[in-house]
């Protein structure tokens, strides 16, 4: 791995984790959303380092573009309210959650460091295809040959979600008017 890639890796790692902290600890939803955009963009850079160009582009387009614009739109639609950083009803829940979170992180890091890191390639056909035609072509080849049925089913999911959103929007308007 070249030195520049390692530097880029560490910069985007630090920025992604800082963005994650910002999502959790920001007082206002707008700051959380902007921090989440920071995290998502830096995750896209990590995807590029992992040689997943198509996923990186989709991350920027779908997540940092469409989804976060929708979030910001809803935040501005709902307007600014009084910000209580943490709920004032259950302080025990806050410390318990932080303790359990630290426990979860320690457990995951323990098992990750315990398991070997010697991962090697098992799908040599994909490897050969990737070396020959490039990553995006290899991804498309896999998607349209091995995973055609799931790919064809996803539009139904999106249509159902769209119908659900329209139905929810209509019913609240009807009950108000």
């Amino acid at each position: 791995m070249p030195v520049l890639a390692i530097i880029v890796f560490w910069i985007s790692t630090v920025l992604a984790v800082l963005g994650g902290i910002g999502v959790v600890a920001s007082p206002a939803p707008v700051y959380s959303a902007v921090s989440l955009i920071l995290t998502l963009a830096n995750l896209a850079i990590l995807y590029l380092l992992l040689n997943a160009q198509f996923i990186a582009a989709a991350q920027v387009l779908i997540y940092a573009g469409a989804v976060m614009v929708l979030f910001l739109f809803v935040i501005t639609l709902l307007g600014v309210r009084d910000y209580r950083l943490f709920g004032d009803r259950q302080p025990l829940q806050r410390y318990g959650a932080m303790l359990l979170g630290a426990l979860l992180l320690a457990g995951i890091i323990y098992f990750v460091s315990k398991s070997g890191t010697g991962l090697t390639g098992v799908h040599s056909s994909y490897n050969a295809f990737q070396a020959h035609k490039g990553n995006v072509q290899a991804f498309g080849h896999e998607l349209f040959n091995g995973f055609l049925l799931p790919f064809e089913i996803t539009p139904f999911l999106l249509v159902v979600a769209m119908i659900g959103a329209v139905a929810l929007g209509k019913s609240t308007q009807g009950s108000r008017g």
Binding site: V23, S32, F86, Q93, R94, A97, L105, I109, V112
Partner: peptide, 29 residues
């Protein structure tokens, strides 16, 4: 960076998300 460093970044982000879900009270956050 190797595979485990990516996994540890992922673990940190996942833990942050979990703590956020448990701690914050704003449904958008």
């Amino acid at each position: 960076p190797d595979a485990s460093s990516y996994l540890i970044i992922s673990a940190i982000l996942f833990t942050l998300g979990t703590v956020g879900v448990l701690v914050r009270r704003d449904p958008l956050i």
